[in-house]
Structure formats: C-alpha cells, structure tokens
Nucleic acid binder design. Structure first.
Lengths: 298, 298
DNA sequence: CCGATGCATATCGTAAATATATTGAGATAT
DNA sequence: ATATCTCAATATATTTACGATATGCATCGG
C-alpha cells in the first residue's frame, strides 16, 4: 500500500464517482479504478459498492475513510512541524545559566527576545554553577549556557564573550566604607576582611580575584569562604566582611549591603560568556546565539 | 511522498545505518540512499547527518521520526479495524423493536447472544411502533427491527418470521372470567366489553383481531381504543374491559390483570418478525440475522 | 429500443524504483 | 604514515508498474 492509494481513495470517497474523482486528481478513470481495486484487494475488503450511477462507501469503507482522513491530515501536520523544527522555529532548547549571570538584565532581555521571536521553541531552563553547566553541555543535557568562568582550553565547547562588567565592592551598612557612594580605591579595601565564594568545581573566579589583589600589591585578608555568590552577599549583610561581585548583582539591593565602584588599574572585570557545543548544528541554537548577540549589541 | 519513503525512513532512523537498514528492507544500499535523499529533498529538510560510520537523526529528523512511527502504527490499526468491520466483527448496528416484542424472552436472549458473539459492534437500540420502525428502516435510521405487524407488500424490506405465539385473554381480577386459570373458549369472550389498541399508523393487528372474531361468528364489543398495548393492559387492570395480547406479555404480570389461554379454531396467533432492508449487505447485519435465527431455533 | 453514462478490461509507453558496479571520504590498524 | 576497511554517494542498467489510450459492458433514461 502506498500513500497514493489512500489519497485516491479519499477523493473517490468524497466524490462518490470515479470519473469525477479522476478529474480532480488530474488523471484518467481507468488507472484510478485499477488503483482502488488494488487497494481493496490488498486490504481484502470491499470499500465501495458499485452503483449504476457512481460508487458508494460500504460500512468498512466509511470507517476506513475516517481514519484515512486523519492519517493524511496528520502527515501534513508532521511535515509542517518537521520543517518548522528544521528552520529553528520549533523544537527544544536546553538553556543553562549561573545564578550570578541571570541577575544581569541584558541576559533576561535576551532570553525574552528569543522567546518572542521563536515562541514554538520550548526552552528548558537550568540554574547551576559554571563548571556543572559545562559538564551538562558535554553530556548533551544542555544545548547552551550563560556562564561567568573562562573555560579557555575546553576544546569541544565554543564560547562567545557577550558583556564585560567591572566588579564592585559590597560592604555592610554601618562600616565607614559604606558611608560614601563614590568609587573607592582598591587600597581602601585591601585591609578589610574579605568574604569570597569558592565553588569547589569552578575555582577560576576565586583565583582571579586573589591574583588581581596581588597584582595590585595587596594581600587579601580572606576570613570566610562561601559556596555561592548569594551566600557571600548574605554574609556581607550580616557584617562578616566585604566582598566583590559583578556590578549587575548590585541591582538586587540586598538589605544591609552597600555597593561601591572600585578604582584600580587594571580594573577587575568579569565577563558573561555564552557557551555551546561546537559540534551542534541545531538551527534553534544558532538562532538563539544570533538573537542574543544582536540583543547584546543594542 | 509515498509510504515507502516513510517506511524506509523509519528503518534507517532505527538502524542509524543505511546499509544495515537496506538489509532489513531486503533491498540494496544505493536505492535506499536515493529514496532517503528524495524524501529529504521533497521536505526541504535534512533528516540525517551523514557520519563517517553510519547516519544520525537531526533534530528535525527526530521529530519527524516520532510522527512517522505514530502514522504508520495508525495506518496498521486503521486497516485492522476496517477488516474487522468488513467481517462484521466491529461497527454499528441500529436495532429497533416494539414494546410488545421486547417482552418476549427469546428476543432479549437473541440480542444478548449477538452482543456476546460480536462485542465490538456497538448496538443502537430504539423502541417504537411497528410502522415507525419500518419508516426508520426505509430512512436508513435503523438497520434491523423486531416487529409484530405483517408488512407483506413492502417491497424493499425483507422480513423473516421468527416466532408465532398465540394471543391470550387479559381480563381484570374480580371478573367471573378471572376466577379460573384454564383455557377459555372464544364464545365466553365475545360478550365481554373489549379494549383494543389501535396505532394510527399501523392498524393491521387491530384489523386482524376484529376479522378473527368475525370469522368465529362473533361481533366484538369494542368499548375503548388505546394507542398502545401497555395502555390497553392498564385499562384492563382498571376494570374497563378485557383485551387479547400476545402470550409473552402475560409474563409482565401486571397487577390486577388475569391471563387465560383462548380456545378457538383457527387459533389467533401473532408472529414476531425480523425486518431489514433487502439492499443492505452489511455483514454486521447478516451476522445479526444469523445469530437471531440460530438462537430462535434452539 | 437506442443512446448516454460510468465502471471494468486490454494493451502500450514511459517514468521511476531497484540492482549492479564503482567511486570517494573518513576512520582504524599495522 | 600508509594501507585497508567501512559506508555513503554516484553512474549506469534493468525491471517494475503507473498512467494513458482504446474499447467493452452493464444500467438508466428517453
């Protein structure tokens, strides 16, 4: 059996007339009669009653007609859906981000813009640490992720630097440092007790901050380590010390924490990077990257 | 596009290997490659990524695969269902009967037997008067019906006499006639006030009863006409007169009504007849008639 | 009774699917 | 690094079968 048989059957059933059906199908009556007969023979079922004036569905033919209509319509839908997926207009995209990155308004706007442009792509959002995100990417659990860390050297992962933002000082209200609003020189921070966040799996940012202090000629006084940025900020709010965070996190306005720009040369900056498997040619992904990039450049 | 393309696509997707798929399909690799390529070309979508070692579904191909599996399975089911309908093992059957006929246990047993033998045929049951049932048959609202009336002369309807049963006397309790249980000679009834049921659309039974009385040399004293048998019996229960009904109705044991056999020559008998369109070749119907006949002959 | 209608049958040409033979790209092994 | 192997792609040949043309046959309407 071939789709041809089903398509022919459908038209003949609708017309109740082989000759008229053959005209609708841009063919002649004899081959159409033969195809219908071949279909009946293959099914072992008489689908039509031959009347002196045309043909008529039998009970079996009528039930078959219902199903054939559904099948042919289903096929059309399947084809349309497949084409939309191929154009990147539908499908799935597993997206990851770190808690610090999602605080940046540009990231939220970019995701929103993609959702608007490709509403039929179902986005699967995951929040995790940078190195776990990269692992998930490797394991095909994610298609793309926003991270902070620099993962130079990880071969099968492509990375696109999106935004660089300076880190700012976060200090508890009440401290002399929190009395002013303007930029604070790095030497004023150097003597403060420092809370830092160290993710066991991703120590790069931690190391970079220490290296940066040392490059400025200061030895940071690390009095506490926190597993995550938000934990560190909570410790700051509790008056345990100061910390440095990407500027976009300052927008969160955690109660009891005061933020100030830092003056240093070179300035300490943190990037937001988009990472994805190099091997993945999914158009949904390419459209996502394109949308994010054009959104960031605005 | 033809089913062939879908079937080939399905196997290649499952094997991830065109050569192995071609073996499963009992064909050679080059034509299979060509057919897959033709499918991709028609859809305008790349369904497979060609790897050095076999092929792999793209995202679009994976969504298409899901739908193709559903479609092919649906087609198989549709074919199986159509064949079951053609064999009379599935489908619909609109069945009608009169209120007096359904009282006969053999009719209920026959319907039950058919239900058991062909559980996938959905029965649509309708109760109505004999002539309305025949009209419904003509109008294709019914496929088959149990009736009382003789519809000799109605050309496109085929009738099969199933059971003949004598009519019995139904008289109110308290009447001298109700004092005994044995058969009563017709002359004892002749003088009684008679309640008869006359359906405007089907006067045949009514006429036959009058003719039967007259053939015995008696003039029936009709004091009341009722539209239906059960109405007539209720009038009898109310002491309004006596009536005659098919024997099977006596089993209903209406309160206040006493039943007695009637002695007469020739005896008055009422048949239960199965009627259906002569033109209707539905196998479900033929199986129904066959089942009813074999059930009645037991 | 005869023409018209409409499905079925017969025969033929051509398009398309499959088979055979070979090439070529990429991976594995020596 | 070269050879070999794997497996899809290409080229050409063959066969199948779809569709077209011509015709037959049954039924209905005038």
């Amino acid at each position: 059996m071939e789709l041809r048989h089903l398509r022919y059957f459908q038209v003949v059933a609708e017309e109740g007339h082989i000759t008229r059906a053959s005209e609708r199908l841009s063919m002649r009556q004899p081959p159409l009669s033969l195809q219908i007969k071949a279909l009946e023979r293959e099914l072992g079922v008489q689908l039509f009653r031959r009347l002196p004036r045309g043909v008529e569905l039998t009970d079996a033919g009528a039930t078959f007609y219902t199903d054939v209509c559904a099948l042919l319509a289903g096929l059309d839908q399947a084809v349309a859906k497949t084409q939309r997926v191929a154009r990147g207009e539908a499908g799935h995209l597993a997206l990851g981000f770190t808690s610090s990155v999602i605080a940046h308004p540009a990231v939220k706007l970019a995701i929103k813009a993609y959702r608007a442009a490709y509403p039929d792509v179902t986005l699967n959002l995951t929040e995790d640490g940078s190195s776990d995100l990269v692992d998930a990417l490797d394991a095909y659990r994610l298609d793309v992720a926003f991270i902070r860390s620099d993962i130079r050297g990880h071969a099968p992962i492509r990375q696109i630097k999106l935004i660089e933002e300076p880190v700012v000082l976060a200090c508890p209200e009440g401290l002399p440092l929190a009395a002013e609003d303007g930029p604070v020189p790095i030497e004023d921070i150097a003597g403060q007790p420092l809370v830092l966040y160290r993710r066991t799996a991703g120590p790069k940012l931690y190391d970079r901050i220490i290296a940066w202090f040392e490059a400025q000629g200061f030895e940071p006084q690390i009095i506490q380590e926190a597993p995550r940025v938000d934990t560190a900020l909570n410790l700051v709010a509790a008056g345990m010390g100061v910390t440095v965070v990407p500027r976009s996190l300052a927008a969160a306005h955690l109660e009891g924490v005061h933020y100030r720009e830092i003056v240093a040369d070179p300035p300490m900056v943190e990037a937001i990077t988009l990472v994805a498997r190099k091997s993945d040619p999914s158009l949904a992904l390419r459209n996502f990257i394109k949308t994010v990039q054009s959104q960031m450049s605005v």
